[in-house]
Design a protein around this nucleic acid. Structure first.
Lengths: 232, 232
DNA sequence: GAAAAACCTTGATCTAAATCAAGTTGTCGA
DNA sequence: TCGACAACTTGATTTAGATCAAGGTTTTTC
């Protein structure tokens, strides 16, 4: 494993308070692998024997039912995913596939569970992380049930503008069809939703987003930390 | 606190593996309170200083946005709720209100966090519980994004038939308007959705549900443990 | 036990969003 | 650089579900 990867991983909230000894033990069983785009890393319904850490690239988590699928989340580096399935030793509820060329670290989930047992600081970090994930999905579900698709799009744009540094112009990190699926709409409807934000000063050309005045957009979006803040 | 309540609580997955000592310490700070129906126990957005345990009655968790609200979950005894907000010491993402006369136990969340630190078995149980909650919401979100409201209703009925013992007749545990909100539809639409299940052998009269042949309903519902199983 | 309130149902209408069907633009590999 | 393929857009149409407006029940309250 690259030493740079290792130090990035160590900085993650999940690992940063671990004792050196248990961290080393955990990482001893880890291995790294590179993948091309569009590789299915995890298949929904199968048990997965690893906690995954995305070090470079991006990964999509999708839910499936009745021959259709929906994007549940898009993972950006550096972060872990499927922690819940790993600690419970349960079948994965989502498939995972690489969107770009990606580098991943695999931690055997038995080692993760052993780490929880051996190191209380790690156990507490897992608690924190799961609580955060749980709250993230609750926010998502609130958005789905309480907002229209245009409102979801407007809030997505405001949130990612902030994440991209707050400038009036920024790039969409993902393809539009995936954004549509993530927001719970069709690609056709996303196109139309984007058009309907024109009067609020939003222009999207390719991946380039421009928000003329985000106060205007905020009037429509009505963001609230209880749905839109990913840091709490 | 009634000794019967105490022993029921001790049996919960969250507490059953705790050391006696840390369990006793945790329960020393606990207190019980009875509430009439329709009492707001928790207000969305406020910090909440307790982990709640519902011992008797029922409690609704609702999400709010832009002057409308949606039922996110309905808690039946004996179970805990808002564990995530309690361990994170973060503002609640949902309000909670009693639906019936209810008895609740309050555990100060500082004591819960202390318990996690002091007792690794408890920390692991919290991990398990949060992972289960997380997976529950993921399943919910999958249902919302991948199914129509009629399909959600059909699966709800099959799931609760099983929970009620599997007989052809059983009672709805909650009012229809709340069921509608929980399933992400209006009361009017729930009425119509119920009618549309008539050809699949479903008759609902008041709170009484009858499913003539649940194989018929299963054809429509297409349940899968990856969405509908609450025990994994 | 009657009046009031809350809940549920039904029908009519409207709206958000999906689907279908072409085009158009953009990307990538030979 | 061209051709092929995938992604995106646009318009027309359909459909799922919301809203509006009455009624009809059941439950609560006095």
């Amino acid at each position: 494993m690259r030493s740079n990867d290792l130090s990035e991983i160590r900085k993650l909230d999940l690992f940063k308070d671990m004792q050196d000894e248990s961290y080393d033990t955990l990482m001893r069983g880890a291995y790294v692998q590179n993948f091309p785009p569009q590789v299915e890393l995890i298949t929904e319904g199968e048990f997965c024997d690893f906690l995954y850490i995305l070090v470079e690239g991006s990964v999509e988590l999708v839910g499936e039912w009745n021959d259709s699928e929906t994007t549940m989340a898009i993972i950006q580096p550096v972060s872990t995913f499927i922690l819940a399935a790993a600690v419970k030793d349960a079948p994965c509820l989502m498939s995972a596939r690489t969107l770009e060329k990606s580098r991943l670290v695999f931690l055997p989930s038995t080692d993760v569970r052993a780490g929880i047992e051996a190191d209380n600081a790690f156990a507490r970090a897992v608690v924190e992380d799961l609580a955060k994930c749980y709250r993230g999905v609750i926010k998502n579900a609130k958005g789905l049930k309480l907002r229209t698709s245009i409102e979801r799009l407007a809030n997505y744009l405001l949130k990612h503008q902030k994440k991209a540094g707050g400038a009036a112009r920024f790039q969409l990190a993902i393809e539009k069809r995936r954004l549509a699926s993530y927001l719970g709409m069709t690609p056709e409807n996303l196109s139309r939703a984007i058009k309907s934000l024109r009067p609020y000063g939003v222009v999207i050309d390719g991946a380039q987003v421009e928000i003329a005045d985000n106060a205007d957009l905020t009037v429509l979006a009505k963001p609230t930390p209880l749905i839109d803040d990913s840091q709490m």
